[in-house]
Simulated scan of single mutants.
Amino acid sequence: MKEIFVEGRTLPETYHKALCTLKEKGSVIPCTDWNQQQLECAMTLYVTSPTEEPRISSLFIGGFHELQQYCMEMLDGLLNFRIGKGWDYTYNQRFSEFYDYVIKELKRNSETRRAVISIRDNKADTKEGADPACLQSIQFFIREGKLDMMVLFRSNDLPEATYMNAFALIMLQEKIARELGLDIGTYTHRSNSMHCYEKDFKLLDNYIKSINTKSREEISYNYKGDWEDLMKEEIPGILKFAENLKDKE
């Protein structure tokens, strides 16, 4: 499998480079589990300044409502009540149990390499009919006085999932950095199978067309003072949606 490294300063810059690189260098192979072809490579996205503006890419599935809800699911466990009721797990459920450990370990030794959260549950994820977690592990380092974060995915859908995954995980990185009184360092997002399904080949092409024909300002927006406010306005509706969903179960 091809190994590809993509580096950028901001999240949108790195993500946009990744879209173009997958199209240019990825291999088209069968994906028989989903009865289609896929474009695939092993890819690492390295973001040197993950909280620098602009932080928002317009090239992802959804908008400020969907991004806000996903962050609430990831950070706050918004839909954890669905576990055992159609869902086997959530990322929040799997990492929140070890959140305090990470804080304690990083405070114990700022040079530690042990601040790791394993998301994969081998007993659950290898059962017949299971929906195994794509995110496998999260690791934190304090280096040069800043909090670095590295995540590993076994599989990641670049045009449909990667941006929202990374945005929410960087929010988690910020949350832990605040508790430690540290600045944000780098964000590394590795997928052993970074891919685009055949059904999204046209979507990928359209994203790349936008990257090649539009200015950065047309496809990348500021989070602070712009999308942050728009996303916060969606919170009451998202909470109401979750409550209504809970009432129906």
Rank of each mutant, 00 (worst) to 15 (best):
T44P: 02
L45S: 11
Y46R: 15
Y46C: 13
Y46P: 02
Y46V: 12
V47P: 09
V47S: 06
V47F: 10
T48Y: 07
T48P: 08
S49P: 05
P50N: 03
P50V: 01
P50M: 05
E52K: 14
E52N: 08
E52C: 11
E53D: 03
E53M: 08
E53P: 07
E53Q: 12
I56E: 05
S58H: 11
L59W: 00
L59N: 04
L59I: 06
F60L: 09
I61Y: 11
I61C: 09
I61V: 13
G62Y: 02
G62S: 07
G62P: 00
G63I: 00
G63Q: 07
F64C: 14
F64N: 14
F64S: 14
H65N: 12
H65K: 14
Q68I: 01
Y70T: 05
Y70K: 14
C71S: 11
M72D: 05
E73F: 01
E73T: 05
L75P: 02
L75T: 00
D76Y: 07
D76T: 04
D76V: 02
D76L: 09
G77W: 00
G77E: 01
L78R: 12
L78V: 04
L78G: 04
L79R: 14
L79P: 00
N80A: 04
N80F: 01
N80H: 05
N80K: 09
F81G: 06
F81M: 07
G84E: 04
G84R: 09
K85C: 03
G86P: 04
W87K: 13
W87P: 00
W87H: 10
D88F: 03
D88T: 02
D88Q: 12
Y89G: 09
Y89C: 10
Y89H: 12
T90Q: 09
T90G: 08
Y91H: 05
N92C: 13
Q93D: 12
Q93V: 00
Q93E: 14
R94I: 00
R94D: 00
R94M: 00
F95C: 08
F95P: 03
S96V: 09
S96T: 05
S96R: 15
E97C: 08
E97N: 10
E97Q: 11
F98C: 15
F98W: 13
D100S: 15
Y101G: 12
Y101E: 13
V102Q: 08
V102N: 05
I103Y: 10
I103H: 05
I103V: 12
K104E: 10
K104M: 10
E105N: 10
K107C: 04
K107M: 07
K107N: 08
R108H: 06
